[in-house]
Design a protein around this nucleic acid. Sequence first.
DNA 1: AGTTATTTGTCCGTATGTATA
DNA 2: ATATACATACGGACAAATAAC
Lengths: 142, 142
Amino acid sequence: MLDRRSPVSLYRQLAHHLLDRIRTGDLPPGSDLPSENTLSSEYGVSRDVVRDAMGVLRTEGIIVTTRGRRSSVRKAIAVEELQAPPAARITVRMPTYDERHRHDMLEGVPLIVIHTDEFETYHPADRVAIITPPGPVQSAGL
Amino acid sequence: MLDRRSPVSLYRQLAHHLLDRIRTGDLPPGSDLPSENTLSSEYGVSRDVVRDAMGVLRTEGIIVTTRGRRSSVRKAIAVEELQAPPAARITVRMPTYDERHRHDMLEGVPLIVIHTDEFETYHPADRVAIITPPGPVQSAGL
DNA sequence: AGTTATTTGTCCGTATGTATA
DNA sequence: ATATACATACGGACAAATAAC
């Protein structure tokens, strides 16, 4: 399964393999992953490698981890469609540690900032899809 | 500086402290951070803690690391202003490992996806700012 | 309520590989 | 070639949160 002679590091190989298991439905959304120690034994690698692999998936927003509990495959969140104001400027970046807690965000979730002349709003990227204003109307006529 | 009795982990404390040094200009954009071993000695923590702290800053897109070289404070990238098409749907997420390489992106940079009825485009979030279309014109009148 | 087992979080040490200077 | 520095991998240990009993 994992190839130690490969130029690709073990933890990246494992991350890729686990993503496959998730994509194929072997590990469906909402389900728990095996524990770090279990994966460590099953794949014959150190717990360090397992943790690094999970770190990759966590950073990509694929899994969610809570201390004392097993990591689980993130369930898709129903995204709210947000109408963007016209002539707004939208930028995206990763939140700082403080911002993530202020907006109650999970790890691996980017922060969307919409700002216009009047205001500035912040939106966790996993909760919204931005819809741009409709094109200039051809002069209402039918 | 770092408080071992604090409920906040050492590596998060260190990450926060380094961010302060960056924000105050002690470590300006483009400059190199001290090496991992140097920081390890200076702050009296293991190299593991230093690496975890740097991992946080890297994930947040604050610093950039290259193997064999010191990590450096990321220079702000000139953002291109991109006119979003009308009635488009914009979503944002972290790229997978493959996508990051395909679009030549740095770590810690979110991926912006714009899709309309006809096409779908991908944009690294550190290179663009999205500008929404101007308000609906009042029927071209006069 | 309390005790134990499980699981993740954190920390330490060491070793080796690989890229850069 | 040597030294420095980061990347990866291994091992062990304890703390802290959760779950099970």
